[in-house]
Design a protein around this nucleic acid. Structure first.
Lengths: 157, 157
DNA sequence: CGGTATTGGTTGCAAATGTAACGAAAATGA
DNA sequence: TCATTTTCGTTACATTTGCAACCAATACCG
């Protein structure tokens, strides 16, 4: 851990609500709950399932490992989301010819339709949240979040 | 839900990684895991427990309900964190004379010492993360997060 | 008052999540 | 080429979390 505290920091009162990790948790939690409820009500899927669908939709065909790399989900979470989506008939798995350990995921016709619907809803959610900001602020936010995500990854070795 | 999508949004490809709710989840998750591991290793407490300690330390004496209002934790989570802290001898509960349903929380001597230590560590974590940003960006981030937290609360009715 | 509703917090149970172990396939390398 | 290690994904088990029911105390209101 890097030492970057100022020397007079001990004198400043400690205010939890002003800590970035806390603020991020508060915000992310609020937004996630909002969205999770909506996706569950409208489409009967979880956020984890939605992430898998979104990635499969984007890349057309992905392996579970790819989902693990691109989301904050571990392989168990992905495995379970995939199983559930297959169960619901939204996703199909076919074993890769190149590597028979891994399965290639792709959306079923039904899955494709629903993915399109959710994408529209997701965009509305995104816009709803961002409505509180000016266009400039939105751009700055994106840039800052990108930097911080990189930083967080660096701090995790 | 407010309709704010632009009319040509259907033509833009959908990219999960660029959605603010997703970015926030990725970042918050990474930062939280980083911190959770550290607090657990160094002090043997969870983030939930740390939040309770921080608030009790700040306000000197609080009720469980106050913790619920100021954090993204529900009353069950707070109840359990409090029970665990009492168990560890870091927190004390005394029933309020004004309302004997509620308990007033305050730190034990040991709890106070540890709280001070964690506050220092928390500041370092905060600074470590923010190191990726300029001073201006840090200020902008705070302002934007505040706006978004308000917005998220408004969207949840 | 006296009954009903509300609030503060805990507990029990079910669902979700994380960790570790696992089997199957592929990569490594002696 | 055969033994060993690594990778892919699943499964089993333990822990955590969330929801609903709950008890106790207060507030509300006829």
């Amino acid at each position: 851990m890097t030492q970057t505290t100022t020397q007079n920091s001990a004198e400043e009162p400690f205010i939890l609500e002003e800590f970035i990790p806390f603020k991020l948790a508060v915000l992310s939690d609020a937004v996630s709950k909002l969205i999770a409820r909506d996706y569950s009500d409208r489409f009967g899927i979880t956020i984890a399932e939605w992430r898998v669908m979104a990635l499969v939709s984007q890349y057309d065909e992905v392996r579970a490992q790819t989902v693990v790399e691109k989301t904050p989900m571990d392989k168990v979470a992905v495995s379970r989301a995939v199983a559930s989506l297959v169960d619901k008939g939204l996703l199909e798995k076919r074993t890769s010819q190149a590597d028979r350990r891994s399965a290639l995921l792709h959306l079923s016709a039904k899955g494709n339709t629903i993915a399109t619907d959710i994408q529209a809803v997701a965009k509305v959610h995104n816009d709803d949240v961002l409505q509180a900001l000016t266009t400039t602020e939105q751009a700055v936010l994106h840039a800052i979040l990108d930097k911080l995500i990189v930083q967080a990854r660096n701090l995790t070795q």
